[in-house]
Design a protein around this nucleic acid. Structure first.
Lengths: 193, 193
DNA sequence: GCTTCTACTTCGCAAATGTCAAGAAATCAG
DNA sequence: CTGATTTCTTGACATTTGCGAAGTAGAAGC
């Protein structure tokens, strides 16, 4: 397992030379996480950020009635971490669990800080990365505000069809903010078209 | 009009000496915006960030059916800007409009970049600020996912009662993701308790 | 003061979604 | 392979929310 995918990912966000990128990803270390195991539990501080080489994870928390609410899916070749816990060293408010067996490259908060100080590009990368995450969250927020459940489903399946191969529908339902029975009905309607 | 409130705000996010703070806010300039005027229009790049000395603004966009969707309220002594447009110099996807007459201190993107380079604290402040905004957006997202309209209303009125003094209820309805008639019903039910 | 406009409420009905229970289908463990 | 568990679907019914229309109250303009 080499760091090619990681380097490609980093350079797509912030173009830079191969050498710079290599320097930037040097501190990342490999990890394996078995299916249903946790990368992070509520109350713990998220002290690493993981680039997913293979596998899928999801983040979730509970609502007032004790139902699981899926807040994010992390597919291969993206980063998985609780951004808030990681950057502010706060206890996490959610769980991050492996939906399938996973292999990741992870970077500790300390190593990231070291990179921030020694590599100006990394500082810029870090900032862009947060803005990017903010952007995605905002789109999802807007989608919740202005679209019906069916429209949200339609958007998700066309923008991220991979998710549907990787995770159970009930997680997707709670991610879309609807009951799993409602999702089932929406899929039925949707299939007719 | 002096910069005391601005300095206080900045130092609350990132503690620093009075001198540092003074240096940091030096480039901010005053502006007045009349009721119903626009601080930003869709399609324009948001090239300044505004600290609101007095007054209230809101951000909004339109959904597929042409209805206004309020995405944010900006109360006095906070920052108003389209974060995504500002940091990425992209065309804004929304409008920012003054709900009442406003006075602001604004900083241009160029001046912010200059501050980033010359004042390390400001870099750190910028990053923390984005993380903070992300945090707030995430809470709202969760609130949409796990709470009923009435719970969201209840939460808003207890966390930000000021908003209800400043902006029409119909804006609040679209901010909560419901029709104004539904908000009216919810308020009626809510008043009984 | 009068008119006009906007914000807000209320009503009746329709559409969307939730809840609960049952059963089918798929997956997992031994 | 087989039984147990989990996931998914379906149906009946309740609840929430949206929509259009009508009416009221208050603010703004003249």
């Amino acid at each position: 397992m080499d760091k090619d995918n990681l380097m490609q990912f980093v350079r797509r966000i912030l173009p830079m030379s191969r050498d710079k990128a290599a320097q930037l990803v040097e501190k990342f270390q490999p990890m394996k996480i078995g299916k249903n195991e946790y990368l992070l539990k509520e109350g713990k501080v998220c002290s690493e950020t993981h680039f997913i080489e293979s596998g899928t994870l999801r983040a979730y928390t509970y609502d007032f009635d004790g139902n699981e609410v899926t807040t994010a899916f992390y597919l291969k070749h993206t980063f998985a971490a609780d951004l808030l816990s990681f950057f502010k060293s706060n206890p996490a408010k959610e769980y991050i669990q492996a939906v399938t067996d996973c292999e990741t490259w992870y970077l500790t908060y300390e190593d990231m800080q070291a990179n921030f100080h020694t590599i100006p590009e990394f500082r810029e990368y870090g900032r862009l990365n947060i803005v990017e995450q903010y952007s995605q969250l905002k789109e999802r927020m807007l989608s919740m505000l202005q679209e019906t459940a069916e429209q949200r489903y339609s958007r998700l399946i066309s923008s991220s069809p991979e998710i549907f191969q990787e995770v159970p529908l009930k997680y997707i339902a709670s991610y879309l903010g609807i009951a799993d029975t409602s999702l089932s009905r929406i899929r039925k309607e949707f299939a007719k078209k």
